[in-house]
Write a protein that binds this DNA or RNA. Structure first.
Lengths: 390, 390
DNA sequence: ACTATTAAGTATGAGTCTCGAACTAATGTC
DNA sequence: GACATTAGTTCGAGACTCATACTTAATAGT
């Protein structure tokens, strides 16, 4: 039987927890002296000294040149090293695949993507990324695959993927062979993107963030206190078909009033009277281009932006995020959509004291999901679940 | 400087964590032998033995009569004791106050409420409850006050309470005197009620639950993995004024389309063509009574129920709860509202694989918030933050 | 140039904790 | 009545954190 009420087993477990706290502090603060780490973690100086020594031996951290200038013995800052532990984040989407190699220091070592949404293309991309950017000294400590699908809370089984015809167990097995001895985790793409924006992108520094992405469908990810809200079955954030009253348009799902039917890519194109191009991104760029000269296009985007604002107002009432990040075609169209959205959000927020969430465009673009997947794979390391010094 | 990256300080901290795990296991499993506790917590038999002995000395647990019948030496079950550690949960609402005394074993020792929503009435009620139901041997380890207001994430400051004219710092000080040496925490009433339903009421056993209560306003509380989702400022769950498209009715807040304007008590009364009585509960009962004979009242409730269903469909898409608990007047009207709500929810849920949340009426009624407040006060004990054995 | 001062980092030894193995205890089974 | 089985305790080993005292390396002042 699995333990259900997680005790921290043994004093080694204690050490792992504390090591995780030190790693998290280094991730957040950047290079820090032992004393600084002790202050921020609450540990004793001596303890931090031992932990840092262990991490140094494991090549997870390294000392930097000391920073003189102040009175007293100068501290010797310790920094996370990037050349030893990395994670691999992958995304399989409808019309593209991408791969990100992230190192322990939080640096993106490699970030590539390629058109064509097949398992083979992804496998190829991942293998290339590993071969070119992960040296023989480096260890891949986790791999996560982001997919536009409903993924169960177990982080493995795909419950529903209407837009992808893939044999998931087969794909997971194939990809798993790339990194021997490591089980691949699967995660929802919007959740991954939200995680990426919260830790590396537009919502960096905010503990509570909401991410909404617009392509043909609408997806969302919720970050509370730095962690993803998954829901009972793992399906939280499926906002595309939530009923929005102001729209009575027919949705692809056969119902009326879905948010997607008001602000999805097709609805946006209908509003501006333009055709769909090869990819959502290209389409959005052409719309942005035309909006510069065509007032009717701007008016159409204005209407879409209002509906975006209504939706995020609703989500804000429920979730109270500090930052809302808009990705997908919303980011490509920028203030053309964001401005009316902000205005509507302001009008609709519940009370005067409620803090207006900051509405920002995604800064990570197409790599968001893969980067978030990679960052998620560092989770066990930063919580101390996985021991780097072993 | 406060430690920010919570390390588990010292081996005593380890013990506290593990003690918390044992207490949680006992809370969930009921009386258990040491071996059972070891299995469920993952700790060694010997360790559990020591922890249980400590708890016994602190009078937090006691041995029960052994359960024979099986082969081998029979185990000696240990159970949480109720006569030593208790918490006090209070609620100050617009038209009533209530107080709940909860003991460590999870039993409600006392539960009282009284009409009239003033600080004095609450103070009086709390003092009586303490005097009559908390013996001299008992220790109050926490007190939480639930209020219909926006409460900041610090659990102390009231940011906005449109319906109550109260000097909050004064009230907290006055109530604080009832239990010397203990700081009183403040929390939102819907959040407290949600917490109560998740741990004691209709959503017991579900890690992920959503609670929606209907009186004049609409409030909600979100429980994820047994814990409340608070949002960036602590204002999550303020769903009353989220824009719901199907309604164009004017809301008290001056906007159109608020959920409250469609399903709040006043909207419901308008739909059935009946007057408001003294309290929401009395009003709801009279409506339920009339519905038995009057088809037009049933039709009105049907319409309200559909709007309830639309809203919880939206929330379900976002949050993916296992159970949705409806409180306030919804619970009083039962299936008259819940049935159309369930039907609408079924129609509107995003995908076929998505698990339908179970929609249930509140089982705790008017005591929900105070009970949840009391349960929240046990939080530090059950996580091991607070040491009972000290 | 030399000393005082300040602050960072390191050794040391005490105190706590958990764990596995061995042991004792209490019951049912044959 | 011997044996098997399971619960709980004892005990020694090992690991960890911590406070204190000490060492080290810089600046400030004279």
């Amino acid at each position: 039987m699995q333990p259900q009420f997680r005790a921290r087993v043994g004093t080694e477990g204690l050490r792992r927890t504390n090591t995780g706290a030190v790693l998290r502090a280094l991730r957040r603060l950047g290079p820090s002296t032992r004393v600084e780490l002790a202050r921020h973690t609450g540990l004793a100086k001596a303890t931090v000294g031992v932990i840092v020594a262990d991490l140094e031996a494991a090549r997870a951290v390294a000392e930097e040149g000391s920073r003189p200038g102040v009175r007293g013995r100068p501290g010797r800052p310790v920094a996370l090293r990037g050349d030893r532990f990395v994670t691999l984040g992958l995304e399989l989407n409808v019309d593209y695949v991408s791969a990100v190699v992230l190192d322990l220091s939080g640096r993106v070592v490699s970030s590539t993507s390629r058109p064509g949404g097949t398992g083979d293309a992804l496998h190829d991309l991942a293998r290339t990324a590993l071969a070119e950017h992960v040296g023989p000294e480096s260890i891949v400590v986790g791999t996560t695959l982001a997919v536009p699908a409903l993924v169960r809370g177990d982080n493995h089984t795909v419950a529903w993927a209407p837009n992808l015809r893939v044999d998931w167990t087969d794909l997971a097995a194939t990809l798993g062979e790339l990194v021997p001895g490591l089980e691949i985790e699967v995660s929802n793409d919007a959740n991954c993107a939200a995680y990426a924006e919260a830790h590396h992108g537009a919502a960096r520094g905010a503990g509570h963030a909401l991410y909404v992405t617009g392509t043909v469908g609408i997806g969302a990810g919720i970050v509370q206190d730095g962690e993803l809200v998954r829901g009972g079955a793992g399906f939280a954030g499926e906002v595309g078909h939530m009923p929005m009253g102001d729209s009575t348009a027919l949705c692809g799902c056969g119902r009326r009033g879905c948010w997607e039917a008001a602000i999805g890519l097709h609805a946006m194109l209908a509003a501006v009277g333009m055709p769909e191009l090869d990819t959502p991104l290209l389409t959005a760029e052409s719309v942005a281009e035309r909006a510069r000269t065509d007032a009717s296009v701007r008016a159409g985007l204005e209407r879409v932006g209002v509906d975006v604002g209504l939706g995020i107002a609703m989500l804000s009432s429920v979730l109270d995020p500090e930052v809302i990040v808009l990705g997908g075609y919303f980011a490509a169209l920028g203030d053309l959509v964001l401005e009316p959205a902000r205005r509507t959000l302001d009008e609709r927020l519940a009370s005067d004291v409620q803090v207006r969430p900051d509405v920002r465009p995604s800064t990570l673009g197409i790599q968001a999901a893969a980067l978030g997947a990679a960052e998620q794979s560092f989770g066990p390391v930063l919580t101390g679940e996985l021991d780097l010094t072993a």
